[in-house]
Computed example of a mutant assay.
Amino acid sequence: MNLHALRLFHAVASSGSVTRAAEQLSISQPAITAQIKKFEKELALPLLQPDGRGIRLTDAGRQVKELADRLFAVERQIETLAEQYGRGDQGRLSLAATYLPANFLLPAWLAKFKQKHERVEMSVTTTNSSGALRLLQRMEADLALYGGLPEEHPDTIQAEELFQDELWFVVAPTHRHAGGSIGLDDMMREPFIMREEGSSTRERLFSLCRTYNVPSPRIALQFNGLHEAISAVIAGYGASFVSSLVVRDEVRRGELSRVHVEGVNLRNSIAICTRRGENLSPAASNLVDLIRESRDGMGSG
């Protein structure tokens, strides 16, 4: 079926006049008339018939127009969809992230993103750093974010460090070391409240003790989540070693206090990973731009 001729017929049927259709389409009246006659012959159906100085639709013409209305409405929907995908306003995004960015960065970033791009469907898988990179490599994630020591990654992965955050020793404001500066060996005499074995920050703490040849900390309380561990410290027991991202608001409000440990200045790297040489989808590109803007507004610490 000649879709160009169908479009011409639809324009005539919608406007009720060959003259008006010719003006709208910038095509001569004789050309439109000739195309519609060929179209009628192709369908073996009369679609238009004279009505005084104008034309009117036959019964078949009315039904063809109704179907054409639906066809060209779908065409406009497809064009709109393509425009939205092209702008990144529609589509699907799958993210893989480690605990730190998944719990303390992504919620605010994704809420801000969804306010601008409501129709983009999003999912987040929280895993360890090697798991996040594995999902990215397997094409099961569009982006991966991790927080911790800079990860070794294959050449197929491109990592962009967004910023670094400090790792802090924190205690309750009433603790005798609150706001003070002490040695690492004295700090390790305190009971610690930490996440479960395998957490990256806990491993960093034990590694720090091995590096400086001081006794490992005594883990007096262990929780599966950081919020629970921090709440216990706020309640007045023990110390914790944690990313500044997690506790900076509590420190600012005076609910927690830092303990400065002499000679210790450990940092986490917060990075975003993509597949090297692969163009991001418009939606993914928009999210990366928003994350970079948010990073710039946070500063480096």
Results as ranks from 00 to 15, higher is better:
95 L>T: 04
117 H>Y: 14
172 A>S: 15
111 A>T: 15
113 F>I: 06
82 A>D: 00
82 A>M: 05
95 L>K: 07
119 R>E: 14
117 H>T: 10
132 A>R: 11
188 M>I: 04
167 L>Q: 04
69 D>M: 02
123 S>F: 06
74 V>K: 12
169 F>M: 11
112 K>T: 15
136 L>N: 15
84 Q>H: 13
104 F>L: 08
144 A>T: 09
129 S>T: 14
139 M>I: 13
72 F>P: 15
99 Y>V: 14
128 N>A: 08
132 A>L: 13
145 L>S: 04
183 G>N: 08
83 E>I: 03
85 Y>L: 05
109 W>V: 12
159 A>Y: 07
123 S>L: 02
146 Y>H: 11
139 M>A: 14
105 L>N: 11
102 A>W: 09
158 Q>E: 13
71 L>F: 15
173 P>V: 12
187 M>I: 12
77 Q>M: 13
102 A>R: 05
155 D>T: 11
181 S>P: 07
171 V>I: 01
176 R>G: 04
149 L>K: 14
131 G>D: 07
77 Q>P: 09
180 G>I: 02
102 A>G: 09
101 P>I: 03
72 F>D: 02
162 L>G: 02
129 S>W: 12
144 A>E: 03
92 R>C: 12
101 P>Q: 05
170 V>W: 06
192 F>D: 09
133 L>R: 09
157 I>F: 06
191 P>L: 00
184 L>A: 09
91 G>P: 09
133 L>G: 01
129 S>G: 15
113 F>L: 11
174 T>S: 15
189 R>S: 15
83 E>V: 12
174 T>N: 08
145 L>V: 04
113 F>H: 04
179 G>K: 05
181 S>W: 04
146 Y>S: 13
116 K>V: 14
145 L>I: 05
165 D>K: 00
116 K>H: 12
84 Q>E: 13
187 M>Q: 14
167 L>C: 01
81 L>H: 08
122 M>F: 00
145 L>T: 04
126 T>L: 10
171 V>R: 01
113 F>Q: 06
143 L>M: 07
78 I>G: 03
158 Q>R: 07
90 Q>W: 08
97 A>H: 04
168 W>R: 12
127 T>Y: 09
132 A>G: 12
123 S>Y: 03
167 L>A: 00
127 T>K: 07
153 H>G: 06
185 D>S: 13
185 D>Y: 00
93 L>F: 00
138 R>Q: 15
176 R>D: 05
183 G>W: 03
118 E>C: 10
85 Y>S: 03
140 E>T: 03
88 G>Q: 00
104 F>P: 10
151 E>I: 02
149 L>M: 11
176 R>Q: 05
83 E>F: 13
96 A>E: 07
123 S>P: 01
110 L>K: 05
70 R>S: 08
131 G>E: 01
157 I>S: 02
112 K>P: 10
75 E>M: 06
84 Q>Y: 00
71 L>A: 15
